[in-house]
């Protein structure tokens, strides 16, 4: 497996209770690239990133993240920033913004140790990067959707990751804030050379920023440069990803039959 791949999957299948969630995925995401992972609801996008992060174990196949098996990442974990789906968190939790951001350092600080002043300063700097410093003492329940999302991104950035994985970061945002967020993530990619993996349905907007798109529908329907994926010759390929341009819901489920179209 190549050393320069941030994430590499070889023949990876993942199952939940015997139900296939991902089937025979082989893909290599180079370090320093900006990838969009698209696909309809239930197509395995989150499963893909959770497998890469070691939260799920594949049923078969090999996964390498930053060159290692996810379970053995060890200190390399500090180079990964993960922004999970917003809806799975409870924002009525009694925490202030700065507490949430500092939580990103807990893995690095280690068991039994306490936060020091320098950890707090780093948390403030991460808030600067998302332009949220003035909200440091704000209750997380008192933030707007876009602000909450930025706090979660600051939590991921506080360790200075080289790989940033965002799962549906714009789900709770209106169109304008979503575009602002993409602009801003793109700057992390261009200025800091961060590898970015962005899971989204929002393919229309995202294709302006990403180097590559992987279209998932349990298996890898297509991947490559946005222009090639989105205007591929294969009608089925077109349908598999193109249908998602019109949003999600019932429509993409019609494209399940296209699941093998992308295999070379």
């Amino acid at each position: 497996m190549s050393m320069s791949a941030a994430i590499e999957f070889r023949g990876v299948s993942v199952r939940y209770d015997h139900l296939p969630a991902l089937e025979n995925i082989s893909v290599s995401i180079p370090s320093g690239s900006f990838w969009g992972i698209i696909g309809p609801n239930g197509s395995g996008k989150s499963t893909f990133v959770k497998t890469a992060l070691g939260l799920l174990t594949p049923y078969e196949g090999d996964v390498r993240t930053l060159g290692r098996v996810p379970a053995d990442l060890g200190s390399l974990r500090a180079r990964i920033g993960y922004v999970p789906q917003y809806a799975q968190l409870d924002f009525s939790f009694p925490l202030q913004v700065i507490d949430v951001v500092a939580m990103g350092l807990y893995g690095e600080i280690g068991l039994f140790r306490r936060l020091t002043r320098s950890h707090r300063e780093r948390a403030y700097r991460a808030l600067d990067r998302v332009q949220m410093r003035e909200f440091a003492d704000r209750q997380i329940s008192a933030l707007s959707g876009g602000q909450r999302q930025r706090v979660l991104i600051a939590r991921a950035l506080v360790v200075d990751p080289s790989l940033l994985i965002l799962d549906e970061p714009t789900a709770a945002l209106d169109h304008g804030s979503a575009e602002g967020l993409y602009d801003w993530v793109n700057r992390l990619h261009e200025e800091d050379g961060m590898t970015i993996i962005l899971v989204t349905h929002d393919i229309g907007v995202v294709s302006q920023y990403v180097d590559s798109i992987a279209c998932l529908n349990r298996s890898l329907v297509a991947h490559g440069r946005p222009r090639d994926v989105l205007s591929g010759d294969s009608l089925e390929e077109m349908y598999g990803c193109g249908a998602m341009l019109f949003g999600h819901g019932d429509v993409p489920h019609m494209v399940v039959s296209a699941k093998d179209a992308g295999k070379k």
Binding site: I80, Y82, L89, M103, G107
Partner: peptide, 9 residues
């Protein structure tokens, strides 16, 4: 607050 991210860390 967030068991999943805690696990990733």
């Amino acid at each position: 607050f967030d068991a999943e991210v805690a696990s990733v860390m």
